[in-house]
Design a protein around this nucleic acid. Structure first.
Lengths: 352, 352
DNA sequence: AAAATATGCGCATACGAATGCGCTAATGCA
DNA sequence: TGCATTAGCGCATTCGTATGCGCATATTTT
């Protein structure tokens, strides 16, 4: 940021010094302030000099003054996940796509391993971002902190009470999958859930129980297996050692389903002939990426990101004028829903 | 950032005002400035008040003053790519993992569609990031601009002359793949390349030609097909309409190979029996993600990101003390190489 | 008791851009 | 000639934190 023959950084002040003008005058010309009168001659000189010196306004100074950075943050409470996880890749990628036309950049906050909730909170609200996309579970203490903060926040993928949230329609999605299996003739259908109590999981399980109850399927024919996050092994072993295993299994998400597909492959269990498997999320749905015997439901990630970005920008605009009662003003005045359930659609792998 | 019963933002100045202290004193106590003497009583009052008011130092102000943001940027010149692309997902995810222990956050710069090189350049060097990871091709005019800037830059995946670059070892990787096919008995091996002149592609093609020449394979038995970026259709059609098609084909990258695998699946071409396919990059190598008949070589993305982060931090430290001649000082004094070729290893899909 | 140290803070300023207000000189109008 | 207007620009301050320097008061030394 320095030019040849001079040690001075290229600032508006420096340009002014060279031209015998004040920094404010230079700033007004370069920032294109409206309603500001300046002689064409001066304007030209400033613009020329700025171009020649390669002047770039310092974004930090500008943001500090204007209280706006044009950056939105993304934080995930699942510290072990990054963009290499297909789910997070969809989330982040969708946000990238949505951010671009809105002239926003995205700050990927670190997971700050070992940091306290307090410290993490501090990193999130320290002024670097105008708003935040939050990907965590409702029980995360951080969520409560953020809900009470003035920072505009939108929760993604898992709903957080009090924070505008965008999630997939768990109930209808689960029903679509179960109906699909039912139509294929399956009578015994298992469900694989994680040990964690995620909101979305609870809703899916609940739907699973209602659905089986409606059809008079006994608990014996609709076992629920609890696994560690995205690993299916214990569930598969339980099924194999059962005297009356289900012919189909519904995984709470695609990553678990992928793991189950892999385990089946290794053990020579044909999918879907020996065991039908359905997932949830619509990951790796691009048929070019891989052949799969997986049926899943998914939202349009582009839609999710777009809606989330809109929601966040509404809040950001709100907090521009009035930094208090943002949430109230937002949900009352604009009638913005705190919980948006996006419709899902069925997607089948090309060997399913 | 405001507290109940008061309109004042929570700043060091405000804390000082309440306690009858000056802002600098508060700042020194809260930032833990070393070698600063203050009475235990005052220190306690400041810390208590700060905690009670929920004080968070403003990162913009701090960065403006210190000339450091602890943020590194990522920019891709391939505007149509985002984290949903498996290649970019690996890149970004790897950087996330590498950034965390170094206490850095990552700014995903937008692709700024329709913006001029000049404008994009401005967004990158406006002070928001301490350093930049650049993912683009050598001919990108932006690369030249950045090379001449004072901003620490590390190029990823494609080498850029004059900028420290970290890439996979194209030559040895290509040889590994070709040797693999050779060992399988293939005599006619095709190569699919994109129409773009990427550095990495040129090196791979060059290796392909040397390798075939060494074995006396005629051009007839080692055809090169040119396709649009990551689409393989035209290549496959050319092969099918050939009177003497190769029995194996080497794709310049995995995404193209995935597309080719898909096309083969659709047309009932068995892989690898009818046609053997190898790729490059080692994408989706997690066997759980999908069954594939693909052999590929790949680098450890964790290693790439780690090395890249180290290289960038060296430059960042350099530009702290001396913002001129950073590149020279860096490569001469530290002996840091401008081009790092990371070794690759073979990875086969579980149906290959 | 005078001088030499500590101790504990405040003052002033920097970082770089943005912005309300005010000042000067030129022009317009009567 | 006299006053009002307007064009064209500078002054001062703001945003919030960091930091070199210096100034009082308190404590120890001679």
């Amino acid at each position: 940021m320095r030019i040849q023959g001079s040690d001075a950084p290229i600032t508006a002040k420096e340009i002014g010094r060279r031209l015998g003008l004040s920094q404010p005058t230079v700033s007004r010309i370069l920032s294109g302030a409206s309603g500001y009168r300046v002689s064409p001659e001066t304007r030209r000189r400033v613009l020329d000099t700025a171009a020649q010196m390669g002047y770039r306004p310092n974004a930090l100074a500008r943001s500090l003054r204007q209280g706006r950075t044009n950056i939105v943050g993304f934080y995930t409470g699942y510290g072990y996940l990054d963009a290499r996880n297909p789910f997070l890749a969809e989330l982040i990628g969708g946000l990238q796509r949505a951010a671009d036309p809105r002239q926003l950049d995205i700050l990927l906050h670190g997971v700050y391993r070992g940091a306290s909730t307090d410290d993490i909170y501090g990193e999130l609200v320290d002024g670097r971002v105008d708003g935040l996309f939050l990907h965590t579970h409702a029980a995360d203490p951080l969520a409560a902190r953020l809900r009470d903060s003035a920072l505009p926040v939108v929760a993604l993928a898992d709903a957080i009470p009090g924070i505008p949230s965008i999630i997939a329609d768990d109930a209808s999605g689960t029903r679509m999958l179960l109906d699909y299996l039912w139509d294929k003739g399956h009578q015994g259908i298992g469900y694989i859930r994680p040990s964690q109590r995620f909101d979305s999981v609870e809703r899916r399980i609940e739907t699973f129980r209602s659905w089986t109850a409606e059809r008079g399927i006994t608990a014996d024919h609709s076992p629920v297996y609890e696994v560690e996050f995205e690993f299916s092994t214990t569930a598969l072993e339980a099924m194999l050692s059962s005297s009356n295993p289900p012919t189909a299994v519904c995984c709470w998400n695609d990553m678990t389903a992928f793991d189950l597909l892999y385990q089946c492959r290794k053990r020579g269990i044909a999918v879907p002939d020996d065991l039908a498997i359905v997932g949830f999320d619509g990951l790796l749905a691009d048929p070019r990426l891989c052949p799969r015997a997986l049926v899943t439901v998914g939202v349009s990630w582009t839609d999710i990101a777009d809606r989330a970005m809109d929601l966040l920008m509404q809040q950001m605009r709100g907090s521009q004028t009035d930094s208090n009662d943002v949430k109230e003003g937002y949900s009352a005045a604009d009638g913005g829903p705190l919980l948006t359930r996006l419709p899902v659609s069925l997607a089948a792998g090309d060997t399913a």
